[in-house]
């Protein structure tokens, strides 16, 4: 089956036609460079996205704190990750880069804070 995919490898946005072949191979046409072929293959077989979100904290002073995945996560896992994030509460203080979730579902993807939030008064 053919899938039309817009390449995001560069701002050109080539329209790729990707066809999966038996044995896991993918035929890509419409690309103007090799990166396009790679992009099409991955987007067809295992599309991934970086997820950014906010997590509830235990402090009314900074009630929500922003987080991101350290690497793109497989698309089908994103709803699960979001549900986990909405259930969770982050304990402050937290520093930018601190890990909040480690190795989510054994994907090797972590969730880290993208900002620093302390409990102290501003000085």
């Amino acid at each position: 089956m053919e899938h039309e995919i817009i390449c995001l490898g560069c701002p050109n946005g080539c329209h790729l036609l990707c066809t999966s072949k038996p044995g896991g191979a993918v035929d890509v046409t419409g690309n103007t460079c090799d990166r396009g072929a790679d992009y099409g293959r991955e987007e067809l077989l295992e599309p991934k996205r970086t997820v950014t979100a906010v997590v509830r904290t235990d402090s009314p002073r900074v009630p929500w704190i922003s987080v991101k995945t350290t690497r793109p996560l497989a698309k089908p896992l994103i709803p699960e990750l979001l549900e986990e994030l909405y259930r969770a509460t982050a304990a402050l203080p937290a520093r930018r880069g601190d890990r909040f979730i480690e190795n989510f579902r054994n994907t090797g993807v972590d969730v880290v804070f993208t900002r620093t939030a302390s409990l102290e008064e501003a000085t």
Partner: peptide, 14 residues
């Protein structure tokens, strides 16, 4: 508050 309870939230996902 977020997340919004819709009763159709999973359909809403990707």
């Amino acid at each position: 508050k977020i997340p919004v309870a819709q009763g159709e939230s999973s359909e809403q996902q990707m």
